[in-house]
Amino acid sequence: MRDIISLFSRIASPSGFEDFLRHAIIDTIAPNIGETDFMGNLIIKHPGTGPKILVEVQMDEESIVINHIDKDGFVRFYPASTLKESEVINRQVIFPSGALGFIGVEEIEEGSKCSFDKMFIDIGARDKKIASKFVSIGDHASFSTPVRVEEDRIVGGNLKIPVAVLSWVVKNIDTSNNLVFAFTTQGKLGGRGAAAVVTREQPDLIVTLDTFPATDTPNNPNKALVEIENGPVVIVRGMLINRDPYATSILDELAESSNIPIQRAVKEPFDYHDFRMASALGSIPIVTLAIPIRKFGIYGQVASFIDATNAGKLLVKTLRKKLTK
């Protein structure tokens, strides 16, 4: 598990351009496993009996989309997801081509707002022709941050722990249950890839793997205490959609009988991704298991391998269980 997390967390996977991570997942699980659809979703089927359970994780990370390259080779962009202006200034970004760039800002009047349309990316290109070799209109770039492993903990920018956990589960699952594993795209854009998978697979139950912001930092203002190394987080409710009580109770019971610590939490502010999945075909019961991660803006994260391992074990036990409802 440690090696998979370390490997995946070093791979840039901006929304809509998750190809590198998908290839790494396939290489990790088994060559040529699964099918990839036109949106880039990777679907791995585990045929069996009983209700069809879709186990889903999103592969993408926060990103920006390129809309213009000027004659001097400077690149303009829009935020692809819910980024704040203050989060991106002077940050380093990486393009699907591997090109690196820094986000700069035009001179703005004192007191006026620094908006995205005043920002540009300098990729070091002399002119538009050279820039166009590395960057195309419509490309997404993500934020480049180094990754470091520190004993049981990992420090980095876009930790792909849920993706690694599900990859480990797919490798280690042994059950006669009817499962579909989905590594989906454009999750940060509101679960677009996941919604397409749901309308295609029409599952009876959805299990999603996600992250949850840990609050065990100095003087953290959040009242709900979620700590790293205190176990995976069972989401009991969301702002847009409730989690299925029966499936959630199974997670609780299996965790207790297996001595796996868990934490319970309410997902805030809005769980668009899960809502879109659960409502794509009307209403499908959904349950969410999350890995606690300390988050610092969009590019600073700290997490523990111990939580990831426990999440993997709990998920395997859950997916082996025969559902009675």
Binding site: N67, A196, T199
Partner: peptide, 23 residues
């Protein structure tokens, strides 16, 4: 020409999820 801004939306945004994903 390209639509040079990443703004607005069309019916395509709602249709892409349907029927297992529609190009």
């Amino acid at each position: 020409q390209y639509k040079g801004t990443v703004t607005g939306g069309t019916n395509a945004g709602a249709m892409q999820f349907e029927a297992g994903g529609t190009q």
